[in-house]
Each structure stands twice: as structure tokens, then as C-alpha cells.
Amino acid sequence: MLSRLKRASVENELLYLFLHSRVAQLAALISVLMMGAAALAAFVAPSNPYDLASFDLLDSLLPPSYMDGGDARFLIGTDDQGRDLLSAILYGTRLSLTVGLLSVAFASILGVTLGLMAGYLGGRFDTIVMRIADVQLSLPAILTALLIDGIARGILPQQRHDDLMLVVLTVAIGLSLWVNFARTARASTFVEKNKEYVQATQIMGMHPLRIMFVQILPNILGPIMVILTVDLAVAILLEATLSFLGVGVPPNQPSLGTLIRIGTEYLFSGEWWIVIFPSLTLVVLIVAVNVLGDFLRDALNPKLR
């Protein structure tokens, strides 16, 4: 009935909705600011929290500078080792975002490839991939990540394990998230596969790989974008959780989760800032990413419009 109306492409539609959503714009702004600050941590941070020589135990547990006993050098206080909390948070955010982005990239490449192939080829390949996904689903993400981390500890000697911690963490989180991508890609591919433009290329005798990755893939990017955003939030959350549990990043390179874990020990003795500021940073980051994910989901879901 609306055929007489102007027809807009998906991209234009997205842009329009974005320009009319204050919330989405704010979330995008916060995400970009935080990512920028994290990326430039080495330049904007007052000190280097990884350099043990640069901080002094005499400065430990100082409250934020605006409070009694605060020190002007440390805007939001210091931790138990005299580390400037602001610097630690900036570096920690950088680490959290790096692990989050890398693991989501890993999960999406693995998941989309498998899901696309399972959906297009069907048959035995599909059955095998989906059975593996079933098994994976019966193990919640955090459990999978913990397990992979545990295996890595068992296989690798302690020293190597600390060196490879970030890789292990990325793989652990990535492997626990691929199923989401695979299922989404598979479901969308099922729909696309039965569309006639795909049949037209099949009649031509186009190579299946080309049909999958050149013809179909661009058409299923919408739902994958949504999962990408939502899972970035999940990955950041998982990394923080693992670090909080003490099985994540090495302690000399604190991520947000590590900072919070350290902070909980001082929660009862009144040094609340060590736990509150990293927690707030983490929550704001995840909220911003989730808001964007929500926006994308609603914008790309024609049923809701």
C-alpha cells in the first residue's frame, strides 16, 4: 500500500533513523570517545600503570583529589600499589576493548563462515555444524571460556601461559561466542538461499563459494551487524568477568575486571573509589555498546516499524 511512497535503501533508512535518535547518537558518541581515549591511552594517561618503577607505595590508597587527603596528581585516587587509578582505567579500557574486538572478530569470521556454509550446503555439513553448536550451547559462554582457560593452564607451563594469556583469552571468548554468529548466518542464509536471485546464479553454474560469499553474504550482513554489536558487549563483559575471577589477563597488566577484583578487597575498609570508578567505566562502555546494538536491531527489523 505504501508502494507509492518513496523507496529508501537500507543504508539511507539506517542513517535517517540514526539522525533522529538522540539516544543512539549519544551512545555512538560515548563509544567513540571511550575507544579513542583507550586507543590513545599511552598519550593521554598521566602515567604508565604497567611501569612498576613509576609508582610509589607511599602513594597507595589515596582518595580522589577533591576529597580530604587527596593528591592533585591523582584525579580519582590511587590503588593499593600507588598506581594512578585514571591511568590504570585508561589502559584497562584499552585492554578490555582490544580483547573484546579481537575475540568478536575471531568469533564472527569463524561463525559466519560455518553458518553460511551450513545454511547453503545443508545436508551432512549442516548437521555436523549444528550438532557441534548444540553441544556448545549446552555449555554457557562463561563456562566455555573458563574451561579453555583451564585447559591452557594444564597444557602450557606457567611462564608461557602468562605470555600467551591475551591470546588464550581471545580464543576462549571467541570460541564461546561463535555459535551466535553461526546460527544467525545460517538462518538468514536459509531465507536467502531460496530466493530466486540465488537460483539464477545456480542455473548459471556459478561456483558455490562465489554464490555464498559474493552473492549471499552482502544480503545477510544486517542481522550479523546486530550480533556483532551485541556480542561485543558480551565479549567485554566476559573478559571483565574472567579477569574478575582471576583467570583472565595477567595481574601486571590490569584490565577493568582486574581493577575491580583488587578493589573489592578494599570495599569494606572504605577505599570505595578503587572499585567504583572502574565499575562505572565498564558499565558505561557496555551500556553504550548495547544501546547501539538495540538501535541496530530495531532499525533493521522491519516487523517493528
Binding site: 568477568t241 575486571g257 575491580i260 572499585v275 558499565v283 557496555i286 551500556v287 544501546v291
Partner: peptide, 18 residues
């Protein structure tokens, strides 16, 4: 709820304890 799903479980726990 959007904020709810964005707060890691352990942070909720810590806030509640606090």
C-alpha cells in the same frame, strides 16, 4: 533493563554488597 543487561553480574553483586 538495557542498563540491567549491561551491568556484569559481579558488578551488581559488588554494588549490592556496598
Amino acid at each position: 533493563t538495557l542498563i540491567g543487561i549491561s551491568i556484569p553480574t559481579f558488578v551488581i553483586g559488588i554494588f549490592l554488597i556496598f
